[in-house]
Simulated assay, not measured.
Amino acid sequence: MDTINNQLAELWEYLTGPELWLTIGTGILKIIIILILAVIIVRVTRRLANRLFNKGEKGGKGRMTERRENTLNKLTKSVVSYVVYFIAFIMILDNVLGFNIGALLAGAGVAGLAIGFGAQNLVRDIISGFFIIFEDQFSVGDYVAVSEIEGTVEEIGLRTTKVLSWTGEMNVLPNGNITQVTNYSLRNGLSLVDINIPYESNVDDAERIINEVAATLPEKYEFIVGTPEIIGVQNLEVSHFVIRVIAETLPGSQWAGERNIRREMQDQLYKAGIEIPAPRVVMYDRGNDGDREVLEEQKREREQ
């Protein structure tokens, strides 16, 4: 009984003594200092990355360079944050909590080897992300179609890519699932517009009006590059013929170009008296002998 009382007394003396609380206070202070330094390093690195990749401070850059800057800016911030906080975690374990980091890392290596076989998808995502960035398949701000999703690339990481759809949904795609990419932002687009003209209208008159309207479009819309061109009569339909117009646009603006070209063409054609053709239906009265004779005569002519 005396032994237990002595041990409890020693424990109480240790808990209430200055040595324990000095050790705890010193450890907490070290943790706070390490975390503050980590936060400062991350924030300073982010500001440096913003200055380094700031398009506004550098003139005369091409579009490809700007795209790469946006991607590398976000990627640098993400990687630095992971690395700095991981180092801070290791320092806390080693200097404050007293863990044997060497043995811990060795054990983590063996465990990582075992986990790696079950984390093949993770490894695949990271490798795919590296090649997406290294090969510049697409960058932040590009309008792309990937995995049946179309939208603007918001962020590219080593594991996932975030694509914002034009309807507002944020799609997070594992990089390993990105097997085919359609990038609409690398080259100029092509607007393709088919204009229906009724057979009552003259082809030359319609093309003249279309050319007059096309000449004014580059001044009205800055995303239309050059004057739209008439390819010619594309199709002959039941009630109309089709004139095809093409126009080169800035990357990703081909759909806006099509909408505005249709609007301008329809307005001017309507003012010139060329209306949108309507479907035609021809009806015959079987009770009319004259119509029957006409049909029979037309049938005989076809057979001859």
Results as ranks from 00 to 15, higher is better:
Met1Arg: 08
Ile4Tyr: 09
Leu8Arg: 13
Ala9Tyr: 09
Leu11Ser: 10
Glu13Gln: 13
Glu19Gln: 13
Glu19Val: 13
Leu22Ser: 15
Gly25Tyr: 11
Gly25Phe: 13
Leu29Ile: 07
Lys30Cys: 08
Ile34Glu: 04
Ala38Ser: 15
Val39Phe: 12
Val42Ser: 07
Thr45Asn: 09
Leu48Val: 12
Ala49His: 05
Asn50Gly: 03
Asn50Tyr: 08
Leu52Gly: 08
Lys55Gly: 01
Lys58Trp: 05
Gly60Thr: 02
Gly60Val: 01
Arg63Ala: 07
Met64Asp: 14
Asn70Trp: 01
Leu72Tyr: 15
Lys74Thr: 14
Leu75Gly: 05
Lys77Val: 03
Ser78Pro: 00
Val79Pro: 02
Ser81Arg: 06
Tyr82Glu: 03
Tyr82Ala: 12
Val83Thr: 07
Tyr85Gln: 03
Tyr85Glu: 00
Ile87Pro: 02
Met91Glu: 06
Val96Leu: 06
Asn100Thr: 04
Leu104Cys: 01
Leu105Asn: 11
Gly107Gln: 10
Ala108Glu: 03
Val110Glu: 02
Leu113Ser: 07
Ala114Gly: 12
Ile115Glu: 03
Ile115Gln: 05
Gly118Leu: 10
Gln120Ile: 12
Leu122Pro: 00
Val123Trp: 13
Ile126Pro: 01
Ile126Asn: 08
Ile126His: 01
Ile126Tyr: 05
Ser128Thr: 13
Gly129Arg: 02
Phe134Trp: 14
Ser139Met: 09
Gly141Lys: 08
Gly141Gln: 08
Val144Trp: 01
Val144Cys: 05
Val146Gln: 01
Gly151Ile: 09
Gly151Gln: 07
Glu154Gln: 15
Glu155Thr: 13
Ile156Asn: 04
Arg159Gly: 01
Thr160Pro: 02
Thr160Arg: 05
Lys162Ile: 15
Val163Met: 06
Leu164Trp: 02
Ser165Ile: 00
Glu169Ala: 13
Leu173Arg: 01
Pro174Leu: 04
Ile178Val: 14
Ile178Thr: 09
Gln180Cys: 00
Gly189His: 04
Leu192Ser: 13
Val193Thr: 15
Asp194Val: 04
Ile195Cys: 02
Pro198Trp: 07
Glu200Gly: 11
Ala206Thr: 13
Asn211Pro: 00
Val213Ser: 05
Thr227Glu: 10
Glu229Arg: 02
Ile230Trp: 06
Gly232Trp: 05
Asn235Arg: 14
Asn235Lys: 14
Ser239Thr: 13
His240Lys: 06
Val242Asn: 14
Val242Ile: 10
Val242Gln: 13
Val245Leu: 10
Glu248Ile: 09
Thr249Ile: 05
Pro251Phe: 05
Trp255Cys: 00
Ala256Thr: 08
Ala256Cys: 00
Gly257Leu: 03
Arg259Ala: 15
Arg259Cys: 00
Asn260Thr: 06
Glu264Ala: 15
Gln266Met: 03
Lys271Met: 10
Lys271Asn: 11
Ile274Val: 15
Ile276Lys: 12
Ile276Asp: 11
Pro279Asp: 08
Met283Gln: 12
Asp285Thr: 03
Asp285Gln: 08
Arg286Ile: 14
Arg286Phe: 12
Asn288Arg: 14
Asp291Pro: 00
Leu295Lys: 11
Glu297Ile: 07
Gln298Arg: 14
Lys299Arg: 15
Lys299His: 10
Glu301Ile: 13
Arg302Thr: 11
